[in-house]
């Protein structure tokens, strides 16, 4: 991918909201901030591998903040990303300490940090529970949901891509797969409660 231009914060935020440019926008985030985010972790008892893992999570949290409107307009991207990264790394360090003390359960990551970052972290925990169920769906269901909800393809495009006879059939399958996924969640009371908690914590 040859992006021969540095993007402004406004451009990055705008393109993150457009599926077709999202990948390029994420790449810009890496070009612009990976080094400083990694530097922070390396300076605070972390390894390069731990930095890579934390930065990946930070990007996800940041993206969720942008997509759910938790990223306040007018804020600069860099400081927010750094705050997310700091919070996540503080959580990791706290986990590490509690592991040493063995008996204590690790602190809840959603409690680390404050406000928008903590709320976004709580939501991500909920997403992880749902995605564990999503992985149990058949490949066809996983693909159609991904094409529709993530890649934002139209019913017509999905029909071509997945060889459906009509858009109506695509619509029916999307709904069927969605019902299947939510049914799985409803059947698992524990997971369902945790997801509801994540929704509440994310508010």
């Amino acid at each position: 991918m040859n992006v021969r231009k540095f993007w402004t914060d406004e451009e990055i935020l705008e393109e993150l909201s457009q599926e077709k440019q999202k990948r390029a926008a994420i790449r810009q985030l890496y070009i612009g901030y990976y080094q400083s985010l990694q530097g922070y972790i390396l300076d605070n008892q972390g390894s390069e591998a731990e930095a890579a893992e934390t930065i990946q999570k930070s990007m996800l949290v940041f993206l969720n903040m942008v997509e759910t409107g938790k990223f306040s307009k007018g804020s600069a991207v860099g400081p927010v990303l750094e705050r997310v990264n700091r919070n996540l790394w503080a959580g990791t360090l706290a986990d590490r300490k509690s592991e040493k003390r063995s008996a204590d359960p690790g602190p809840d990551m959603t409690q680390s940090g404050n406000g928008d970052v903590a709320r976004s972290l709580a939501e991500i925990k909920g997403y992880q529970l749902i995605n564990a169920l999503y992985e149990k769906l058949g490949n066809k269901c996983k693909k159609i949901l991904m094409l529709y909800h993530f890649e934002s393809l139209s019913l017509k495009e999905i029909a071509v891509e997945m060889d459906y006879g009509s858009e109506l059939l695509v619509r029916e399958d999307i709904d069927r797969c969605m019902i299947k996924l939510t049914a799985q969640l409803s059947e698992n009371k524990h997971a369902c409660n945790l997801v509801r908690k994540a929704i509440d914590d994310g508010k």
């Binding site: 997509e67 995605n131 909800h149 993530f150 969605m178 996924l181 969640l185």
Partner: peptide, 12 residues
Amino acid sequence: FTIRAVKMNGNK
């Protein structure tokens, strides 16, 4: 929330 989770899976 489930739809957002699917989206976030793609983002991930």
